[in-house]
Design a protein around this nucleic acid. Structure first.
Lengths: 152, 152
DNA sequence: TATTGTTATACTCTATAACTATA
DNA sequence: TATAGTTATAGAGTATAACAATA
């Protein structure tokens, strides 16, 4: 149980993730996007959000952290931010046509690079298995990982 | 190529990695280790390092960043830091017996948690495939990912 | 009174550059 | 002059807490 013949998951994932993010950066910059901005656009590409807090939580950010991001995205015409008629404290957030275009193109470019520079190194069979397993793990509720059911 | 029907790698890996790290934290704290301290011990468990710069590069850190970490590890008797006789500017770094004990136990505990809380959610077949693929990707030279061979 | 969004402040982490000693 | 290690400073990123508007 827990033999030391393989590196820890985090020890492998952290550097890999850093490299992936470094790989994304030039693509994002080419489209005038920050990492959080891209994250927001991706979330909104799956549908509008009612409330900034909801959106923030969805992408694992703090409510205060995304405000400047939203300001910027709105200023560049990539998102619409309108007061919710039902609750005028909240803002309805959705992509503009331009925003949808940008996020679609950016994501295609990023995934293309990922496939050509990273996934290429996996045999096709392993590749699909890896992506499938990764999706499973990525969709785990964070509670299930962060909590310590068998802590002590 | 680059169809948008799957999330980006980094988008899946980043939150997962954060959760993993959050999971590690209490284990590390229980052994009085920081994340970088643990990283150093893991690296040294694969053999002594001749020079702090070498060690830093090996774990993806800056030379200046690990100094305080090494100070702390040495203070707690987990590593030996002796001037290299061949080049007295450099320091020879290696685990003490106590250091080896700590890192072994800590890693066993961490991997046990990873398996019970994360890998558990993968069918055994997928699990081995995932770990194998992850090792492959983690061992890729960062140059191969960070660089942009087909940049434009 | 509670909640959404906002702003301002403080704290952590990281990177950059200057300094000491050996080569 | 160049390099290993160290130290000090500044910068980016993040979290915490107070504030205004609406419910």
């Amino acid at each position: 149980m827990g033999s030391t013949d393989r590196p820890d998951l985090a020890a492998m994932l952290a550097p890999l993730t850093r490299s992936l993010i470094a790989m994304e950066r030039p693509v994002l910059e080419a489209h005038g996007l920050s990492m959080w901005g891209y994250s927001v656009l991706i979330a909104l590409s799956r549908g509008p959000a009612r409330g900034q807090g909801v959106l923030a939580q969805e992408i694992g950010a703090d409510k205060t952290r995304i405000i400047a991001v939203l300001d910027d995205l709105q200023k560049h015409g990539l998102i619409d931010r309108t007061p919710d008629p039902a609750d005028r404290r909240a803002r309805l957030l959705e992509l503009t046509t331009e925003g949808r275009r940008i996020v679609t193109r950016t994501q295609a470019e990023i995934q293309s690079r990922e496939e050509q520079q990273v996934l290429r190194h996996l045999p096709p069979a392993d590749r699909r298995g890896f992506l499938s397993a990764l999706r499973t793990l990525a969709e785990l509720p964070r509670d299930g990982i962060d909590d310590n059911p068998g802590a002590d």
